[in-house]
Design a protein around this nucleic acid. Structure first.
Length: 828
RNA sequence: GCUGGAGUGGCGGAACUGGCAGACGCGCCGGACUCAAAAUCCGGUGGGGCUCACCCCCCGUGAGGGUUCGACUCCCUCCUCCAGCACCA
């Protein structure tokens, strides 16, 4: 009979689909569109299981939705710029472009071998000038509107490599390649995009996504944006026109402020301590904290330290002198770099003031708890309450005080309502080669000059030497660096930094719709027709960066008049990780299963089936060899069944319609029930493991009725097998096509509509009803569907076992859940 | 610490709105086929008990309480694990 040989059959159907372009989505037409997207892969070299899982989930949905009559747009492309290409160049002496293209070719072949239903005609690669010129174009639009700007900023610098490191390349304060070398901070001129202009909208619009994006992602984005509403408070310095501004969300506690704390990097610090006796010691301490805060920022939980500057500021309400300290736990990057220390009502301040023996006055009392006393105060009370010891504000609630105190100070010009965001402007400069050149020319006469749009793209030169030291390799390419100033024509110098690769992925999904458009980043009409993205599938590792940048980009595009959308992605789905031996698959752990090996040994369908069967897509899944083999067995099982019966079915396509046998009815019902379950799983919850389980049950049922030819007519068997094949086609598409053909169908599964189910048939005709007495199962009854509640009860009482239990007892009540159970409650 | 998620057999996981806990698969045990083995097909498989005629009874979804005729499911308290953020004023 022969078994299913994936390595001959699967490529056959892959060619078949491709030749007929089944998965090409027409850009116009009557069918409703569905834009289904998976996060584009970085061409790292090999398709790994994480990719495979992501695309398998997407492909199942794509195939289902096509069968439901949707015009499914399902593209794929390559996130082709990035650091690994440069590292490979240094290590293996290959050009980053060559390395990248090789990897793309390799991974593309792997994707094709899995038979994913992509529209290959819309494939893009972000490292091609035809793509990245539009990064440059967007940059220029933003520059024109002041959304792209340049400022000095700190970067991580490895003195060994002589180059800038990304945050991710700093491992415990040291360079990832020189683990002994501490990373230094350098001030460099960097380009930034003003994402902070959109902070409020990015935050507010998260509410629109509620219920359609995972709650976890929304929360992470809210935290990332980190909005705090509060006040900027001005503290005057005695005998000086200088002042210090603090930011606080708790101005109601300001009467409890016992000190002002400054970040070590606070600009005024040096000036403040200059004239103070003993300033040498103070300076040394401050210097130490500065060093420490640069290096150990990430390590958090370092011991709080501080030093009194010897200077005082004047309390804005009382005018009292408040000592100014410098402390290591105050961040220059957040707020104003200066804070009020209110030990009684802030945990950090409590810890700090306790350590340095500063007073801890209570100024807020809890409303519905025991009042605090100095003696009983073991930790800060950070809740809201009612004010005490707060001058004229004593007696107000925190909420009232927040308003009134801010207003009062504001009137005297000493405070201002302020909102601070944790999110900072997006630094996009990378001192790297393999990225989009920033289209700017510096001219001694004209300053910073944007490259005119008609001169785009600024092409990344290919003739460079990449050594991994000495800053951007582009610096050593005179033909690139030296460029005439577009304004005055005089000698100019090109920006040699390239853009963060997250720029590419912020808008790539628009480009898919018109990948070769050369007058604009995309065709507006097509985008109007296909956007927003209906479904975006990918891992949660991009919860903040990519998924916030792409939202930002769309809002900018909207404000540029390019699109009419606020949000690019309607629904987001995060798949879980692939786990092996209890840990995430990774090279460093050595628990990787290669996709090539899977294909070779089991084929695409088995790998795909197992991926969906092992766990629901949203959860982590454990990869096991035995589980894969189980799925292979199932595929062989269904293959053998069809192979055995198909010849007979083809001969007697139409058989005499007579009485339906019991087995036929059983099979038909099971088939329609399975259809209901699978359809339900696709429509509501994406638990394909249960869909596949249902299909397995159906196949098991078919086996149990063997030999089928004895009790099941060709007609019924043909219908049941046909339905079975269609139902598992989203999960094992090659097998489905093969069996479909063997069943004598002339069409392709890929163009066959999803089967509907007969709700009447899918219903149980006979069902078992559970009889409980006092909530405990006592008996079961097989009854037919159309009994009334009364008749059910009569049957229950007629049951021997139940009658025995009820004998002589008084019944308190009876609960009847139609079709499920009867519970007779006895009087205790 | 905060936020999000999860704790169910030997394992992965089912159980839709509170209604037969353990679907389906793996593993294991047994049977059929075979000279034999593999493959395949069929049956069994949470724990404990019983004059085990497979009839029946008890226990059982991280722990403890609650609501309910009835709780894996709802409420409260706690524990453990995973992920993300982490001195954000």
């Amino acid at each position: 009979m022969g078994d299913y040989d994936s390595n001959t059959i699967e490529p056959k159907w892959q060619r078949f689909w491709e030749e007929r372009q089944f998965f090409h989505a027409p850009k116009t037409g009557p069918k409703p569109k569905l834009y289904l997207l998976e996060m584009l892969p970085y061409p790292s070299g090999d398709l790994h299981m994480g990719h495979m899982r992501n695309y398998t989930i997407g492909d199942a949905v794509a195939r289902y939705q096509r069968a439901r009559g949707m015009n499914v747009f399902h593209p794929i492309g390559w996130d082709a710029f990035g650091l690994p290409a440069e590292n490979a160049a240094i290590k293996n002496k290959v050009h980053p472009r060559q390395w990248t293209l090789n990897n793309i070719a390799r991974m593309k072949a792997q994707l094709r071998r899995f038979g994913f239903s992509y529209d290959w005609s819309s494939e893009i690669s972000t490292c091609e000038p035809e793509f990245y010129r539009w990064n440059q174009w967007f940059f220029l639009q933003m520059f024109k509107r002041g959304l792209a700007y340049r400022k000095k900023s700190r970067v991580n610098w490895c003195p060994q490599c002589q180059t800038v490191l990304a945050n991710e390349q700093v491992v415990e304060g040291c360079c990832w390649r020189h683990e002994e070398t501490p990373v230094e901070q350098r001030e460099l001129e960097q380009w930034f995009l003003k994402i902070t202009d959109y902070a409020e909208e990015l935050l507010a619009d998260l509410d629109k996504l509620a219920g359609r994006w995972p709650e976890r992602i929304l929360t992470m984005q809210r935290n990332w944006i980190g909005k705090s509403v509060g006040a900027r408070v001005r503290w005057a310095l005695p005998q000086s026109d200088k002042f210090i501004e603090t930011f606080t969300t708790r101005i109601d506690t300001i009467y409890g402020a016992v000190a002002l704390l400054l970040a070590p990097e606070y600009p005024l610090v040096d000036e403040l301590i200059a004239a103070v006796p003993g300033h040498a010691t103070i300076r040394r301490e401050v210097e130490k904290m500065r060093q420490q805060s640069q290096r150990a920022q990430a390590l958090a939980q370092t011991e709080k330290e501080g030093i009194f500057t010897g200077r005082f500021a004047l309390h804005p309400f009382t005018g009292e002198k408040v000592p100014i300290w410098v402390s290591n736990f105050v961040l220059m990057e957040y707020g104003t770099g200066a804070v009020q220390a209110v030990p009684a009502h802030d945990e950090r301040d409590f810890e700090f003031c306790h350590k340095y023996r500063l007073p801890i006055p209570i100024v807020v009392q809890p409303v519905d708890d025991k009042p605090l006393t100095d003696a009983s105060l073991r930790e800060a009370f950070t809740g809201y309450g009612r004010l005490v010891n707060s001058g004229p504000y004593t007696g107000l609630t925190s909420a009232q005080a927040l308003e009134k105190m801010t207003d009062d100070l504001a009137q005297q010009g000493k405070a201002e309502r302020t909102v601070f965001y944790r999110i900072k402007d997006w630094g996009i400069s990378r001192q790297r080669y393999w990225g989009t050149p920033i289209p700017i020319i510096y001219c001694d006469a004209c300053g910073t000059v944007p490259v005119p749009e008609d001169q785009l793209p600024v092409v990344l030169p290919l003739d460079v030497e990449i050594t991994g030291t000495g800053g951007s390799p582009l610096l050593n390419v005179p033909s690139f660096v030296n460029a005439p100033c577009p304004k005055c024509g005089g000698p100019g110098r090109r920006e040699t930094d390239t853009m963060d690769t997250f720029v590419d992925s912020s808008w790539y999904f628009y480009r898919y719709l018109s990948p070769h458009e050369d007058k604009a980043p995309f065709d507006t009409e097509t985008v109007k027709r296909f956007f927003p993205i209906d479904l975006y599938i990918g891992g949660a590792e991009h919860a903040v960066l990519h998924l916030i940048y792409c939202r930002f980009w769309t809002k900018v595009m909207r404000d540029l008049g390019l699109v009419k959308l606020d949000e690019p992605v309607t629904r987001l789905f995060n798949q879980g990780m692939v786990i092996k031996d209890g840990a995430k698959m990774s090279k460093s752990r050595g628990n990787v299963v290669s996709t090539d090996e899977m294909i070779e040994k089991y084929g695409a369908d088995t790998a795909r089936l197992f991926t969906l069967f092992a766990a629901p897509p949203s959860k982590d899944m454990e990869w096991t060899q035995a589980g894969v083999e189980g799925c292979e067995r199932f595929l062989q099982r269904i293959f053998r069944l069809v192979a055995k019966h198909a010849p007979r079915l083809r001969q007697h396509k139409v058989s005499p319609s007579g009485e339906v046998t019991a087995n036929e009815r059983l099979l038909l019902r099971k088939a329609h029930q399975t259809c209901r379950r699978v359809t339900h799983d696709f429509e509501t919850r994406w638990h394909f493991n249960t869909s596949i389980a249902a299909i397995m049950e159906l196949v098991n049922q078919l086996y149990l009725l063997e030999p089928l030819e004895q009790s099941v007519s060709a007609k019924v068997l043909d219908e049941v097998l046909g339905m079975t094949v269609l139902l598992f086609s989203p999960f094992a598409p090659h097998m489905a096509e093969e069996l479909w053909e063997r069943l004598g169908r002339t069409s392709s599964v890929a163009e066959t509509p999803w089967p509907g189910y007969d709700a009447e048939l899918a219903r149980e005709e006979e069902y078992e009803i559970v009889i409980q007495v006092n909530g405990r199962v006592r008996s079961r009854l097989r009854v037919s569907e159309d009994l009334t509640e009364q008749e059910l009860l009569e049957q229950a009482h007629a049951d021997q076992r139940v009658a025995a239990l009820l004998n002589g007892q008084r019944i308190a009540r009876t609960v009847v859940v139609p079709k499920k159970l009867i519970n007779i409650v006895l009087v205790q």
